[in-house]
Amino acid sequence: MSQGQLWEVFVRSRRGLSHTHVGSLHAPDAEMALRNARDLYTRRQEGVSIWVVPSTAVTASSPDEKDPFFAPAGDKPYRHPTFYEVPEGVRNL
C-alpha cells in the first residue's frame, strides 16, 4: 500500500531568513504533508514557517550540463566589486 506522494520540505528557521530545504517526506495531500513536516522537521522549534512542494513540481538543472549551463558567469569577474582597483586613501567606495 502506497505511502502517498513525495514532498520537499522547506523551513524558515526564524523571521528575517529565507526558507531552506531540509528534506522530504511522504503524504497523501498538502495538508497532511504540512502536519508531517511539523512533526518530522520542527520537533525542537527549528522553524517559524514551513513550505511543502510536491517533488515532481521541482525542475532542476542537470549535473551533466554543469559546465555549459553555468559557463556564462565564469568569465565575468567584473560583476564582483573586488575586480576594481581603488586608489589608496579613497574611502566609502
Binding site: G4, P28, D29, M32
Partner: peptide, 14 residues
C-alpha cells in the same frame, strides 16, 4: 483513508 480523501479533493490540493 488518507489517499481516498486526497483523491476526492482533486489534484489541485494534492
Amino acid at each position: 483513508a488518507a489517499s481516498a480523501y486526497a483523491a476526492k479533493h482533486g489534484p489541485e490540493e494534492r
